[in-house]
Amino acid sequence: MNGRAAGRIVGVGRALGGRVVTNRDLETVLDTSDEWISTRTGIRERRFVTDGQDTVTLAVEASRKALAHAGVPGESVDLVVCATSTGPASMPSVACLIGEAVGAVGVGALDVAAACAGFSYAAAVASSMLESGVARRALVVGADAMTAIVDQRDRSTAVLFGDGAGAVVLDSGDESSGFVDHILGADGRMAPLGYAGHPGNGDKLYQNGREVFKFAVRIFPEMVEKLLARNGISLEEVQYIIPHQANARIIQAAMRKLDVPEEKVVINVDRFGNTSAASIPISYPDIYESLEPGRYVITVGFGFGLTWAANLYRI
């Protein structure tokens, strides 16, 4: 652990559903209130897809922006990994379609399904490929149009989710900057705690909110502490923690447990809601320019499955 760094982030981008939906908007269609939603979740608004947008178009838009930001052509990418649970079809994968759209064809492309922990899993997969030399430049995307699998009439879940995508371009780099450690975990015994059918399926998203909340509040600080301990790093050396944006209350509870100052923790659930696999990469554009070389970023995902994953990244 804490050896060579692999997978240096050289470009970031995001795309969001075209329609801004505020809590007030939801008040008019659901038996809910702005006060209830904001105190229980920290969410003030979220983005929903508009006509012509779906997981694939969001993923492609975020990818194009990340490539442009990196200043590299899509043709130079030799691995596309997309974390998603809302691909419009079982086949082809979203990653194949991203590759086609950006010109990364004839190279490795795969989707990673790990629910809201998806991006952390995808980052682990891609950076391991870069470390092994199987790939040299990876496009890693987290994309979910959650409205495709959420029942918009269910007030307990409809208020929580949003649609978006985030992408990062990872280069092999010079081993000084990149991912240095990952934690991956899953426990299928807890599968009944959360479920959602494929897009188009009548079985919409269900969760045991109480149990999922407890799980998240426990696993989030546990993973951060584990990464710090086994890499001999102090919290001071960490510039940012980017948690999955499920609910501000989960993030606040974990911060209290870790005793982390607020400015270290990236929060955008208030603007975007829970965008599942997109919630972590969606955060990068807001912090990328402020990253300080030598310090660390910890990304923390947790989701249905149950799944959990975290990454330690040296800037």
Partner: peptide
Amino acid sequence: ADSLDLVELIM
């Protein structure tokens, strides 16, 4: 206390 406060208190 709201429902999430109670979950945290129990934990």
